[in-house]
Amino acid sequence: MSIKVLLVEDEDLLTQMYSRKFKADGYECHIAENGEKGVKIANEIKPDIILLDIMMPVKNGIEALKELKESQTTKDIPVIMLTNMSDEQYVEEAINLGAISYLVKSELIPADVVKKVKEILQAQGKKNLTTD
């Protein structure tokens, strides 16, 4: 069974770009174009990991993160913020709310993002093994 990634991002060209790379590397990639849809889909499909943008219409990434971490269904899914807002206030807020990592899009190419996802999932796997 392949790993399910949920990409919450409003910029079409970016979702296409990342999902193409994820698919090429054997991941199953789902897309939500704003925070509200992101929370809804996350509850439905229970992805293994979520990539979450911040500046989005309808519901922004910070609000979505809050809801994801409050819901029993989604609270344990690792969330990586993937955004171009790199001001410390956002980083801090996201980490305090439970995001596992914070990536700045302009500093990374898709291959870097996939690599990061892989690392985090591996680390998570190890953690689960030791705590179980």
Binding site: L14, N84, K105, S106, I109, P110, A111
Partner: peptide, 17 residues
């Protein structure tokens, strides 16, 4: 600058692929 970052990530990202 924040707004400029998005198109630049798109250009750099696709070119890297």
């Amino acid at each position: 600058s924040h707004q400029l970052r998005t198109p630049v990530s798109i250009i750099n990202g696709y070119l890297s692929m």
